[in-house]
């Protein structure tokens, strides 16, 4: 299985998927990613600083995300490091979303027959 095959990275750890989803909305710095993850999870997922940066490190190591050489906008805070989704990261995120969607569909079908 080729390493560039997005399905070869599945299933993604929950924290990695949350961060990738946060980056689908645009380039963000660490604190903004944490806020986006909290918002998208309805406050259920609360990442601490080291968990967040450890997750970002893994995403960068895998080639799913990359650090921007400079801030996206001139008005952005220069001390912050911004991250963006790579092409591989988008494919992996989409593949994980499809996998979870299939899982949710099965769960709904089995739990509430007729409602799926």
């Amino acid at each position: 299985m080729a390493a560039s095959d997005p399905t070869s990275y599945l299933p993604l750890p929950q924290a990695q998927f949350h961060v990738l989803v946060a980056l689908t909305d645009g380039d963000r710095h660490g604190y903004a990613i944490m806020q986006a993850v909290e918002e998208s999870s309805g406050g259920v997922v609360r990442m601490g600083p080291a968990t967040l940066y450890g997750t970002l490190k893994r995403l960068v190591d895998h080639g799913f995300a990359e650090e921007l050489a400079r801030q996206p906008n001139a008005t952005d805070d220069a001390r912050r490091r911004y991250y963006r989704l790579t092409g591989l990261g988008q494919l992996v995120c989409a593949a994980e979303a499809d996998r979870l969607a299939r899982l949710v569909r099965i769960a709904r079908t089995n739990l509430r027959p007729g409602l799926a």
Binding site: G30, Y31, M34, P49, A50, L52, Y53, K57, R81
Partner: peptide
Amino acid sequence: YPSAFRHEYGEDLVAHYGDLVAD
């Protein structure tokens, strides 16, 4: 933290903590 992680993200961690305190 391990030195490699600390060197790479140490200042980000402290800045992040500062943002949390302020926020």
